[in-house]
Design a protein around this nucleic acid. Structure first.
Length: 353
RNA sequence: UGGGCUGUCGCCAAGUGGUAAGGCACGGGACUUUGACUCCCGCAUUCGCUGGUUCGAGUCCAGCCAGCCCAA
């Protein structure tokens, strides 16, 4: 009997994942990662590891009859996710903490623990597929295109893919909800998670100031000509393409078109000034392990759930790509992930520089 | 205190007799395991004030108030 460590967040998806694998005859061990202290986060709401969610996960594990544990990864999460999150914003970029959490927590820390526990696999409720041909593992988009999460999994290595199960990748979200209803999981109708899990009220800028223990300095809003337009509330509170919350009235909508961490300025401009068609990507991972030999045309996804767009990708060094788009895109943002697809296969991904 | 101009939602701004456009900002919702974007809904019974003309006035008239500009 194969042993699987199932990451159970307390939500519907991971609950059904555990149920399906148990039904398929795997020996499942349900695990919820405790990633932060609720007191620190001041959460009243359900997030991926509040006490309520742990209770939900435990309840489901008990119902389907699998072993259940809570692992405390608080220190790793602070170091690998929260700290990076803060540093990225402070450097003028816009991080995607979910990707770091997958990379450093679920598929590193938790994965390693699973292997130590003699598990054959780790499983999560992600919507993505893994296939294997001639000993090479491929990461593919989910069958339910609307829920596809392959984008946030681009960092997976051959080793990890060989020991990972994504049973939901073959399913529709509606089926998952049905199963949860049939099994009377108490989270069957729970709302899909949203917001950053460690910033449940959505105010990440306030969280960062609390985390750092000090306010970020105010600075100037300027236009593309360098003229002052007003005062911003700290560079970390803005991201490229942002329109709301600028507090500046103008003839037409204004967007954040650039951030300069060194000068502590935020540049505002029109929608037209947001478009660009060239950028670089670093910190790469190639799913199949192979670098790109020549300039190649792939489909690029430049932010979570964005449409894929054609891109001419050139590898400029071992760990960097240059990307030329055929059609300019709005708000290409430093710190976000760029993931490249060949059809339904993830080829590689990295961080936009 | 001579002349000229202006006064419509927090900001910008349509409207020149027929019963208050729009944009920005703001609030709410949808979407969403990141931040954003996007979409939907809401947002002046009232047009500096007071009278008058008119069936009807933000729109015309008078006076007043406030602000700006030019002269002194």
């Amino acid at each position: 009997m194969k042993r699987v460590l199932v990451a159970m967040s307390g939500g519907v998806d991971s609950s059904v994942t555990a149920y399906i694998l148990a039904q398929q005859g795997y020996e499942c061990i349900g695990v919820t990662m405790k990633l932060y202290d609720n007191e620190v986060v001041c959460s009243n709401r359900h997030t991926c590891c509040s006490l309520d969610d742990i209770e939900d996960a435990r309840s489901v594990a008990q119902r389907i009859g699998v072993e259940y544990h809570v692992f405390n990864f608080t220190a790793d999460f602070e170091r690998q996710v929260i700290r990076r999150f803060a540093e990225s914003y402070e450097a003028g970029a816009t991080p995607n903490p979910c990707i770091d959490c997958n990379r450093y927590l679920k598929f590193d820390r938790l994965y390693t623990r699973a292997m130590q526990l003699d598990c054959d696999y780790i499983a999560t409720g992600h919507y993505a597929r893994i296939s294997c041909e001639n000993g090479i593992y491929t990461l593919k988009t989910a069958l339910d295109a609307g829920k596809d999460q392959s984008y946030v999994l681009y960092s997976l290595t051959q080793n990890q893919l060989a020991h990972t199960l994504f049973p939901l990748g073959e399913m529709q979200k509606s089926q998952v909800r049905e199963i949860a209803e049939q099994q009377s999981f108490l989270n069957a109708r729970k709302h899909d998670s949203q917001d950053i899990c460690f910033v449940p009220n959505g105010n990440y800028a306030a969280f960062l100031e609390r985390y750092r223990g000090s306010k970020y300095p105010r600075g100037a809003f300027i236009n593309t000509a360098g003229e002052a337009l007003g005062e911003h509330r700290g560079i970390a509170a803005y991201t490229i393409g942002q329109r709301k919350g600028l507090g500046i009235s103008a003839k037409e909508p204004l967007y954040v078109v650039a951030k300069n961490a060194a000068a502590n300025t935020v540049t505002l401009g029109t929608q037209a000034e947001l478009f660009s068609s060239e950028f670089d990507v670093a910190d790469l991972n190639f799913i199949c392990g192979n670098a790109l030999k020549t300039p190649i045309t792939l489909d690029a996804m430049l932010r979570y759930h964005a449409n894929k767009i054609p891109a001419i990708v050139t590898q400029t060094s071992e760990n960097a790509l240059h990307v030329q788009l055929t059609t300019p895109q709005k708000a290409i943002t430093k710190g976000q992930a760029a993931v490249f697809y060949d059809g339904e296969n993830v080829v590689c991904g990295g961080t936009i520089m």
